[in-house]
Write a protein that binds this DNA or RNA. Sequence first.
DNA 1: CTTATTGCAAAACGTTTGCAGGTTT
DNA 2: AAACCTGCAAACGTTTTGCAATAAG
Lengths: 135, 135
Amino acid sequence: MRYSKQRELVLQQVEALHDHPTAEEIYQNALKECPGLSLGTVYRNLNSLVEAGRVRRVPIPGQPDRFDHTLSWHSHLYCTRCGQVTDLALDAEVIRRLLESQPGRVTDCVLTWIGLCESCAQEDEAIKTPVAAAL
Amino acid sequence: MRYSKQRELVLQQVEALHDHPTAEEIYQNALKECPGLSLGTVYRNLNSLVEAGRVRRVPIPGQPDRFDHTLSWHSHLYCTRCGQVTDLALDAEVIRRLLESQPGRVTDCVLTWIGLCESCAQEDEAIKTPVAAAL
DNA sequence: CTTATTGCAAAACGTTTGCAGGTTT
DNA sequence: AAACCTGCAAACGTTTTGCAATAAG
């Protein structure tokens, strides 16, 4: 893999944006520092960076892929209210038990939680109980 | 939700095809029994059946959605060699520990294993060790 | 000088949607 | 009759691709 200004910039963005940006978000941010950059190049570079193991792809059902600078294994919570994706650590022993219980030759595992993040869960609670919120 | 021949047929197909068919596969099979059926209708009905809880959607990263007649919670293995999706039971205690450890208000969880299914893992082994396979 | 990488635009892909007409209740 | 559902085709959002031009080694 040859050096390229564009790929370096894409990697920088993924490492700078810690909120699991989409390709489009990475593109919009990178554009500020490299006018003329094209979205296709961002996609191509994200693919090679994922393949090279420098970046992780975070697939979210029914949503565009996100990208993660954290390389160690963890799970994600997709909040259906605010759209935010947050990292969730998992008990190491639970992971080991999961991995050990699998037949075949597993190379990867995608674990995604769907629901409300902590702050949306709180807000939602407040909305559901307006009386309590007014106190 | 009103009765419709097309929706009934889509449901039948999901229940008949136990290999996690895609919308396209369901469409192709249903077409035999209902010529003139349209793909859009299959998508619409799959969506309403999922919403009604009669069918489960199985999202596979980078692949079209699959649909599952099994309603109880389980995980899936996507074989990157043959493309097959197989059900994988999970230890109930492990699931409970996973769910309990989550913050926010989780409503669903998608757990997908990526790798080789048992038969592809075997074949792959045979290819990698041709001498052993010849014995 | 060779070949990877780029920007651009077009296409691919899976899926949704608007509409006019047909079905169910 | 009112609502729902259909087929059709067009549109959608995300991602990939073919191409000629540019940049890296």
